[in-house]
């Protein structure tokens, strides 16, 4: 469960101008919940996702995941947390272009020091679970956008995380593929009991979440009922 208390993140921009990306945000996200975050560009969505993903530390306030205060962790401990508990899916897929689909998935198991044989086996299974069992040896350039995002989802899930963070996962996809990917994410969320937090501009995608949050001007607003 995520617990955010008075979470503030400020950046010092050019000419020493201070920009407040998140301003005293306080929310709780229970385990297994599917949350979507919407909002205008510059509203703080990406900043919140970075903090939830242990990629950055808050300027003030507290952010705990499963009782661990992320704000106080050292760099190595943050890396450990990301390696074990948090899966990422990015808008641009972020696959390594020189590695095959299977090798891309395997990269997520490297920090966990999984033996090579087991690594290959689990990567193959993960690709099969996203419908790419026949494409394991393909390079990203040989796959469609939807297939690449499936590889990215397999990479995010192969390490069996508790949290899946997705940043505009359907932003680069057509409507049909978008629906396929969302169906895949939802099925994985349900099957694995994940906590899934998804940033999107697409209201159709956002509406599929259990809870909808809106971030604007660094402030969060629950719009589930809206």
């Amino acid at each position: 469960m995520y617990t955010l208390t008075d979470l503030t993140k400020t950046y010092t921009g050019k000419r020493q101008a201070r920009v407040t990306a998140l301003d005293s945000v306080s929310i709780t996200i229970p385990d297994g919940e599917f949350v979507s975050i919407q909002g205008p560009t510059g509203g703080g969505k990406s900043t919140l996702l970075q903090l939830l993903g242990a990629l950055d530390r808050p300027t003030s306030g507290s952010l705990s995941l499963g009782g661990t205060d992320i704000a106080t962790l050292k760099e190595r401990e943050l890396g450990r947390l990301r390696a074990d508990d948090i899966g990422f899916v990015f808008q641009g897929f972020n696959l390594i272009p020189t590695l095959t689909a299977q090798e891309n998935v395997e990269t997520a198991l490297v920090p966990q020091h999984v033996a090579a044989d087991e690594r290959r086996q689990r990567a193959r299974e993960a690709l099969e679970s996203v419908g790419l069992g026949e494409r394991t040896d393909h390079l990203p350039s040989e796959l469609s956008g939807g297939q690449q995002q499936r590889v990215a989802i397999a990479r995010a899930l192969v390490k069996r995380p508790t949290v899946l963070l997705a940043d505009e996962p359907t932003g680069n996809l057509d409507e049909h593929t978008r629906d396929e990917i969302m169906a895949l994410l939802e099925s994985q969320w349900k099957d694995r009991g994940l906590t899934m937090i998804l940033v999107t501009h697409d209201s159709a995608v956002a509406r599929r979440a259990q809870r909808r949050l809106r971030l604007a001007g660094g402030h969060v607003q629950d719009i589930t009922a809206a």
Binding site: G79, R82, G87, F88, P97, T107, V110, P111
Partner: peptide
Amino acid sequence: REFGTLKAIGWSN
């Protein structure tokens, strides 16, 4: 972006 991704999925420096 490649190294950023690897760091995001837990690769150490």
